[in-house]
Simulated scan of single mutants.
Amino acid sequence: MIDNQYGIGFAIHDGVDPRAIRRNEIIGSKKAGVVALLRDRMVSGDLSAPGAARVYRDVDISDNLIS
């Protein structure tokens, strides 16, 4: 992803299976590298920061290159 507001957004709501966001290269995201979305609304801070994604136990966010 290059020069977007958010690099990667993932859905959080009942019925969503566990998921992994790994080994991505995100370049120039203006607001955040990885965020959680509830419908069309961002509901988290930047989850690409170390330890920030612990709130979402069913999501593995790791080994991403954010620049």
Rank of each mutant, 00 (worst) to 15 (best):
M1K: 08
I2D: 11
I2C: 02
I2S: 13
N4C: 12
N4E: 09
Y6M: 04
G7M: 08
I8Y: 03
G9C: 09
H13N: 10
H13I: 01
H13E: 13
H13G: 01
G15I: 05
D17A: 14
P18Y: 04
R19E: 11
A20F: 02
I21W: 08
R23C: 08
R23I: 01
R23E: 14
N24Y: 13
E25P: 01
I26S: 07
I26Y: 06
I27H: 11
G28H: 04
K30H: 05
K30P: 00
K31C: 00
A32R: 02
V35E: 01
V35C: 08
V35L: 08
V35Q: 02
A36K: 08
L37D: 01
L37A: 11
R39N: 14
R39H: 12
R39W: 03
R39L: 04
M42I: 15
G45L: 03
G45Q: 11
D46F: 02
L47K: 03
S48H: 11
P50W: 02
P50E: 03
G51D: 10
A52H: 06
A52Y: 04
A53D: 11
A53G: 00
A53Q: 09
A53T: 02
R54M: 06
R54C: 00
D58R: 11
V59D: 03
I61G: 04
N64G: 11
I66E: 00
S67W: 07
